[in-house]
């Protein structure tokens, strides 16, 4: 049972992130939801790289078993790319706020309809 607990956490985090993204009209909140989903995916990858009795993947004569380095590499770059794309999203939100005076989704849709 405990072997699958990590997956359940990932699922719960992902579902919460998805809920934030769909339910909240505020664009900043949507970006936060997106970050939560991203973190859930990273958690998923990193947790299946773990090997029982293994250690961090840095070669040393005293150790035989290492955790799987491949998910670490993929997620390491994903985190840095994630912050860069978050910055793009925030810049878009700033421009939207300057054009519409609001970052609530329904206000923006209404302003578009009036025009």
């Amino acid at each position: 049972m405990t072997g699958l607990f990590g997956y359940w956490t990932v699922i719960a985090t992902l579902a919460i992130g998805l809920y934030i993204m769909i339910a909240h009209g505020n664009l900043v909140k949507k970006v936060i939801g997106l970050n939560v989903v991203q973190t859930a995916v990273i958690l998923f990858y990193v947790s299946f790289g773990k090997v029982h009795g293994g250690t961090a993947p840095i070669l040393d004569e005293r150790f035989e078993i290492y955790s799987n380095p491949l998910p670490h590499v993929l997620m390491l770059t994903a985190i840095v790319v994630g912050v860069a794309t978050t910055a793009v999203a925030l810049a878009l939100i700033v421009r939207i706020w300057e054009s519409y005076g609001s970052i609530e989704e329904d206000d923006i849709v209404r302003a578009e309809l009036v025009e």
């Binding site: 840095v80 912050v83 860069a84 910055a87 925030l90 810049a91 700033v94």
Partner: peptide, 16 residues
């Protein structure tokens, strides 16, 4: 690349 880009992102927001 990463150091410059991260600083560039921060500068873009603050100078705006």
């Amino acid at each position: 690349g990463v150091a410059s880009t991260m600083l560039w992102l921060f500068y873009s927001f603050t100078s705006h």
